[in-house]
């Protein structure tokens, strides 16, 4: 297993990072993920590489997971753990939606559920997640839940092993209240750098744009230097 772990945990001495916290052969999302607020909502972005040690188990993974109509999450860490957590949250939000009338769950609701799961089970999970969503009451919002299960509301959030390489890029290029085009350019630029420098990130760049129009997927391939094809599916509400 390579030094590819955004999800690496501190060892018992509290100093050295435990590079082998995943079980032997466990599928890891050695990853670059991010989500940002922009003028009309939020954009989530991710690379598509999944590794098992040095082996690329999947080069076109989808790390952007829908948990409700316009509430999505970016997953990093153990693929199994994050899928399970997202499945549970998705169930709760679905139930919330039918039990509590027309308003439906907000991104806050989702973030609270994710946090509860990640915090209460922190000893057994290796899951670093970014929650981003759009709801009519609050507009777009981005939450980050790193390894210990704390909850951070942010303008934008980056995560995964690849994120370590783009703190500078993001800090230099971030602007609040960007247009959709600017937002996409920002995410693409940041993830492009992360993929370039991080050995365990790679493949395509996927994005999801959440606004009052619903969700919209974007795809950018390495073949053409991440210029296209771009918007992959028409807006749905």
């Amino acid at each position: 297993m390579g030094p590819d772990m955004a999800t690496a945990m501190l060892g018992e001495d509290g100093i050295h990072i435990d590079m082998n916290h995943l079980k032997k052969g466990e599928v890891n999302l050695g990853t670059s993920i991010m989500a940002i607020n922009f003028k009309d909502g939020v954009i989530l972005g991710a690379d598509s590489r999944t590794t098992t040690g040095a082996y690329i188990a999947n080069r076109v993974t989808d790390k952007l997971t829908q948990v409700h109509d316009t509430i999505w999450c970016c997953r990093s860490g153990s693929a199994a753990d994050t899928q399970a957590v997202a499945d549970i949250v998705s169930y709760h939000l679905g139930l919330y939606g039918v039990m509590n009338g027309q308003d439906g769950p907000t991104t806050q609701t989702a973030a609270a559920l994710f946090q509860e799961l990640c915090y209460e089970n922190k000893d057994q999970l290796s899951a670093g997640m970014i929650i981003a969503g759009y709801d009519k009451r609050h507009g777009g919002s981005v939450y980050s839940i790193p390894l210990g299960g704390s909850l951070h509301k942010q303008s934008y959030a980056i995560g995964g092993s690849g994120s370590t390489y783009i703190y500078g890029y993001c800090d230099a290029n971030w602007k609040e209240h960007m247009t959709e085009e600017e937002g996409i350019k920002f995410v693409k630029g940041a993830l492009g750098e992360a993929i370039k420098w991080d050995g365990s990130s790679g493949g395509v760049i996927r994005m999801v744009v959440l606004t009052n129009r619903g969700h919209e997927r974007h795809l950018y391939l390495p073949d053409n230097g991440y210029t296209g094809p771009g918007r992959a599916r028409p807006a749905t509400t």
Binding site: N37, K39, G41, H138, G139, G140, V142, Y143, K153, S155
Partner: peptide, 22 residues
Amino acid sequence: ESGVDGQVGNGPAAGAGGKVDD
């Protein structure tokens, strides 16, 4: 506009994007 209990941070200073005044 209260946040999630116990959350850290408040998101963008410019406010949440795309909020509708419906």
